[in-house]
């Protein structure tokens, strides 16, 4: 499998490491010290343990460890592994010189 890094170009998957579901960016908002009620407990259980396994497109984080050391957001088809989109995970304003 090859991933087309938006910074480096097409690279073998062995240059990257996989983090996981890119749609899970928001941690449940539980105030510090507040007791976990059933709803909060369920939200945390879902955030930490439960993952979708869709038989189609999935967005996920990959880290280009052996290249530009940037986090990427990859859209990959779970059945075919076809990658339809790769973009930088962080906003473009932080990327440096134009």
């Amino acid at each position: 499998m090859r991933i087309v890094c938006p910074f480096c170009g097409a690279r073998d998957a062995q240059e990257f490491s996989y983090l996981g579901d890119a749609s899970l960016q928001q941690r449940p908002d539980t105030p510090a010290g507040a007791p976990l009620d059933d709803a909060a407990h369920a939200a945390w259980h879902d955030y930490v343990y439960l993952r979708e396994n869709p038989p189609g497109e999935h967005t996920e984080f990959w880290y280009h460890a052996s290249g530009c050391r940037q986090w990427l957001k990859v859209t990959r088809h779970m059945r075919t592994h076809a990658i339809s989109n790769v973009e930088a995970a962080r906003p473009s304003s932080l990327r440096g010189a134009a």
Binding site: F7, G9, C68, R69, Q70, A88, L94, R95, G96, A97
Partner: peptide, 23 residues
């Protein structure tokens, strides 16, 4: 210039090589 893509530029005894976005 500071290259914004994976490039090397050089003049005299100095060269600048892109390393990552912003590096």
């Amino acid at each position: 210039p500071l290259p914004s893509e994976p490039k090397r530029v050089a003049a005299g005894d100095v060269s600048i090589i892109w390393s990552a976005p912003g590096q």
